[in-house]
């Protein structure tokens, strides 16, 4: 995502999901999804999707500490990533910040925070969005 122009519409389209944890709920089968899905994979054309804002609380389902980062994340290394299970059910992948590494375990309660995720170099776009921190 180093090219300024490539990431632009892509990141803009995702702003509601990345900033506000907006996902979807299928009104037919009540399944909740994050990120947004336009079609319910369970109900397909019988499904009816609506936007759903997730509360931002959850717990760690699995985690790792990354020592060998992809480009753009070198300065933050080592950093913790987790699969977070949201209170409402769906899971997502996010960084865990502002927390002691030793506090992050399977089952640890976490909450959404708003952070910079990536920057397209010094001149490009700053991509903001959710990360999580251990509930104090």
């Amino acid at each position: 995502m180093s090219s300024v122009t490539m990431g632009l519409p892509m990141t803009w389209r995702r702003i509601p999901e990345r900033y506000g944890l907006i996902g979807s709920e299928c009104e037919s089968c009540k399944t909740k999804y994050f990120p947004v899905r336009k079609i319910c994979p369970k109900c397909r054309r019988r499904g009816k999707m609506r936007d759903l804002k997730f509360c931002g609380r959850g717990k760690v389902y699995s985690y790792t500490v990354i020592h060998s980062p992809p480009s753009g994340f070198e300065l933050e290394t080592p950093y913790t990533m987790a699969i977070v299970e949201l209170e409402e059910g769906p899971r997502l992948t996010a960084q865990i910040v502002d927390s002691d590494i030793t506090d992050v375990k399977i089952g640890t309660l976490v909450q959404m925070v708003f952070r910079k995720i990536q920057e397209d170099g010094k001149e490009g776009l700053i991509h903001y969005g959710f990360k999580f921190s251990v509930v104090k």
Binding site: Y19, L75, E76, Q95, V97, D98, V113, F114, R115, K116, I117, I126, Y128, K131
Partner: peptide
């Protein structure tokens, strides 16, 4: 500030 914090992220946290 943390490596991933700036005036905007902190403004969002305070506003929330």
């Amino acid at each position: 500030p943390g490596m991933d914090e700036d005036a905007a992220t902190m403004a969002v946290e305070a506003s929330r």
